[in-house]
């Protein structure tokens, strides 16, 4: 198991840099067909998620590419209204726009800094609360947005959404047959996400 853990650590580290220009080198020593990471719940990174909390519900995960198109859409638990595919596409486009606007209407004053200080880039909408669900949005440096719909009681949603990003890095970005900006149809990604987010 220690070998699998080491491999997973390496994959994680590499996944964080997947947007850099190193993807070619990944293929030489990362085997996405190996059985090491097939069951993600065995991975050492899943240990911070308690498995026996009843109100921990993840409703759905949406992935929006940098152009505002919906590339992945999956429901894990009932709780949200059923929408058809077209409505999800419209929702993704709308959210993409709102995210950009919410960055522009920032009313917070710019703090005084020493010359040479580089301000961190302003982020758009990160978390939305309604009376039935909570939406956590995580935008990667490359502009891909991960939208996680959970119950309002769900703690640590930022951690969960980042772990989804890691799974995306492992199984989608390292898949040589995946074409960028296109809908994600990767079976191992589906299985890994299911293993992580679906509660028995």
């Amino acid at each position: 198991m220690s070998g699998a853990g080491g491999n997973a650590t390496q994959q994680l580290r590499l996944a964080r840099h997947h947007h850099r220009n190193q993807r070619q080198s990944h293929y030489s020593h990362t085997s996405f067909t190996s059985t090491d990471n097939q069951n993600v719940r065995c991975s050492p990174f899943a240990t911070y998620l308690p498995t026996n909390t009843p109100n921990r519900v993840v409703f759905a995960l949406l992935i929006i590419n940098k152009a505002g198109g919906l590339v992945y859409n999956r429901t894990f638990a009932p709780g949200l209204q059923k929408l058809d595919g077209n409505d999800y596409l419209i929702l993704a486009g709308t959210f993409h726009g709102i995210h950009a606007i919410s960055r522009q209407i920032n009313p917070a004053p710019a703090a005084q800094h020493l010359p040479g200080y580089r301000r961190p880039p302003t982020t758009g909408l990160e978390s939305l609360e309604s009376s039935h669900f909570r939406l956590t949005c995580f935008q990667t440096p490359t502009g891909v947005k991960f939208l996680l719909f959970t119950s309002p009681e769900q703690p640590n949603t930022e951690v969960v959404v980042r772990r989804c990003y890691e799974i995306y890095g492992d199984y989608v970005m390292k898949n040589p047959f995946y074409s960028m900006e296109m809908p994600i149809r990767v079976e191992k990604f589906d299985r890994a996400l299911g293993g992580y987010l679906v509660r028995p």
């Binding site: 726009g97 709102i98 960055r103 302003t122 909408l125 309604s130 039935h132 669900f133």
Partner: peptide, 23 residues
Amino acid sequence: SLRRMVRQLGGEDDQFLSYRTAE
């Protein structure tokens, strides 16, 4: 738009409460 989105996803009786960015 957010209010409409929340209604669409959470049902007619769902209410948009707040959103947060880093700033």
